[in-house]
Design a protein around this nucleic acid. Sequence first.
DNA 1: TCAACCCTACCAAGTGTTAGGTAGGATCAT
DNA 2: ATGATCCTACCTAACACTTGGTAGGGTTGA
Lengths: 185, 185
Amino acid sequence: MSTNDAILAAATRSAQAHGYGGMNYRDLAKEVGIKAASIYHHFPSKAELGAAVAKRYWENTAADLEAMFAETGDPIKALRRYPEIFRRSLERGNRLCLGSFMSAEYDDLPEPVKKEVQTFANVNVAWLRKLLNAAGVVGPEQSEERARAIFAAVAGAQLMARSRADIALFDALIKSYRSAGLLPA
Amino acid sequence: MSTNDAILAAATRSAQAHGYGGMNYRDLAKEVGIKAASIYHHFPSKAELGAAVAKRYWENTAADLEAMFAETGDPIKALRRYPEIFRRSLERGNRLCLGSFMSAEYDDLPEPVKKEVQTFANVNVAWLRKLLNAAGVVGPEQSEERARAIFAAVAGAQLMARSRADIALFDALIKSYRSAGLLPA
DNA sequence: TCAACCCTACCAAGTGTTAGGTAGGATCAT
DNA sequence: ATGATCCTACCTAACACTTGGTAGGGTTGA
């Protein structure tokens, strides 16, 4: 793994745990094994590092979603498994979705970071919409709204579960969404 | 309004906009009209100020919920109106629910603040559960889970709507929750 | 040789917090 | 009634520390 990737990986972990504002160069450098000033050789500013982190994050998410669908080929099954993406963050050190944390901080974010955060949301909603349309669980005129509702609800579940450090709570919330009819049962 | 209250009000606004970590004494003092050091006459530390802010927040929320129910006396109607609590924060300067923001920051929060944040969630869930039981929309053995699901979903909707600075999006998400069956229609 | 990479050594600005002081009002013994 | 004493509420000035960021120099592999 290149130093560049190591920085991005460490920055992603930090941003998921402490947010963009809570992420700092000294801790980042310590984790990568270089000095703080050396990060500037790879990224010209915190804003651009943050944007790179967010971009990489939604690209990876898009790839994960694609892979999950490829495993089954069934839109309903892919829809049911969608929450897994968020579950994994909780498993890996009780971390929050980067998009959720940065949404909370949104007003204080530099412009390039804001842009990538929006894209993250768009990627998720577009993907859910595609699955909803393919599965035909709601009419095509409702798929956009439903896709956003699922994304928001799952993000909310992750937020709540994380503050209790309780993955079982996340599972229970998703189960509840299913039995209520928000997600396919 | 006493200086004490003015500090609490300013701190609440700041924490809702920038989080606990983003809230700082200089800005707080400027808004209140005193010097930063003078805040220490009213609150011994940032941790205890944060705890006082969070406590006041869930107390006010509890009172708002009570008042909303008193207006109608009908648990179903009160349940339908629950999202209004979160909507108001968006109306007043596109601010996030304090509980949501602090949930995201949870791991970095001082202990006394954590405690109040948990209480905020408990207050919401307990209230929703009471309404669900009174309304009989789900069986009593499911009311706890459903209450948590509603709380998490509405918080998620607020998070998403805020990052787009779009109250109409919040309304659309709530509408979607209703048509999906998570909230009573 | 030369560029990529990382270093040491800073800096200005900001962080929560403390020390010590002051103006003015209440309380109290004389 | 009055001076001594205390309290509330706030101040200025500084503390130790952290932040993102910069300047310039050394090392290393091609």
